[in-house]
Design a protein around this nucleic acid. Sequence first.
DNA 1: ACAATAGTGTCTGTCAGACATTATATG
DNA 2: CATATAATGTCTGACAGACACTATTGT
Lengths: 245, 245
Amino acid sequence: MAGSRAEQQFLRRYDRREFLAPLTTVDMAIFSIIDGQLKVLLVERSNFPAKGELALPGGFVDEVRDADLLETAHRKLTEKTGIESPYLEQVATIGTSTRDPRGWSVTILHFALIDSSAVVSTAASVAEVSKWVSVEEASNFNLAFDHTDLLAMAIDRLRSKTRYTALPLALMSETFTLTELQTVFEVILEVMLEKKSFRRRLLDSGLIEETGIFQHGTHRPAALFRRGAGSANSEFPRSLEIHGS
Amino acid sequence: MAGSRAEQQFLRRYDRREFLAPLTTVDMAIFSIIDGQLKVLLVERSNFPAKGELALPGGFVDEVRDADLLETAHRKLTEKTGIESPYLEQVATIGTSTRDPRGWSVTILHFALIDSSAVVSTAASVAEVSKWVSVEEASNFNLAFDHTDLLAMAIDRLRSKTRYTALPLALMSETFTLTELQTVFEVILEVMLEKKSFRRRLLDSGLIEETGIFQHGTHRPAALFRRGAGSANSEFPRSLEIHGS
DNA sequence: ACAATAGTGTCTGTCAGACATTATATG
DNA sequence: CATATAATGTCTGACAGACACTATTGT
């Protein structure tokens, strides 16, 4: 069925180069918490078009090296940050005739969350000019192409998932206190959360486990946790209620 | 900034045909409720590859006619069904080196929900061989390419959204009774729902409004409703609890 | 009057929010 | 021992589930 003689002949004669396909790229919104702020990695474009402008990192599918789009995204991420196994998720695919001056162009937008502590290694492994910018600043820059829109979509997705999953766990370092975790949620959502309900939600979720170790600081020591078995992407039965702001 | 002389020169010399881009298509899972079942529209492929096999409808971006991917999806939908304004949503983008024998290929998968009553007009306006198949059957067919996987993703998305939105409203005809609506939810979720909580949820949502008309059938007449102001895509604060199957 | 379908009353359970209270370090 | 921070107790409120009950039609 799948390999009739006629089909094989068709495929032998088929040459993709005879057909014009849209330019296809993978773009990445790579988030991390740095200095208590939600930051995104931007690169300064070293080639035309939009040379010199700030943009989300991204690039073309490498038909030889990438078996699928996720590998393209992973490869881009490793190239830019040196990070190997972040949280990585497809956000949306944007394709229009006008977004790239080279012609009809499609980008598959992903977002990645990386562990704050892993970020240190970034600068060293990066050749291209790249920098971490707070999402607020980044949203106000005039990014290359439609990247301002793409960034907004990625932030929306992160915010919305933060309301009904424990996704921000992917931003934490190996061990963390519940107060630290709550602060990260609050930074993302731009809202204060109730301590008791936050702790109940996380502790009951089974997504974190106690290390038995305590972090000694200025006052009462805080229990240190690590990520547990479950997927940080799994859904709570109810969303956090976001009122004001 | 955006149009320096050097950049203009770069663009004048740039010829996309020199670069090989992945094959890019838009595929559609078009759902409707027919004879009380959730059905999906399948077409018999009239060309190689996979000629003669059943597949989700889809096709290439038309760089001249389509301003963006959503227009491509709308165009495909209108070509296949004659429907103009369905609910339409992007599900995911799948790109691998192996899914199409012609080479590295990307598809942007969408799903559409169309009004049961609109379906009647379908057969007439369609040249290609297409047919409505229950999702159960369709999932068991061996569809062309990776379309069995694509269909599963689209069904997953529909099921999951049915748990926390009123998306199935898009499947109803102009007016409908609450019992009919509940039955559609049940068909999609493959679970029985509690009448009282279902009605409360929908009535309190403001997503439907009474027509004041009653449907007289074999017994007590049922109030007829129509879709209201709000977006059927908006989220309830809690998901429906799905226990057993 | 009866059967069948439409629609309601009301109790329970779960889980998030509010906020007061207790616990345990360090200086 | 004072104070800051960690952690808990417990009440409320929103909303889904369960299920018994009432209402209204056609036959």
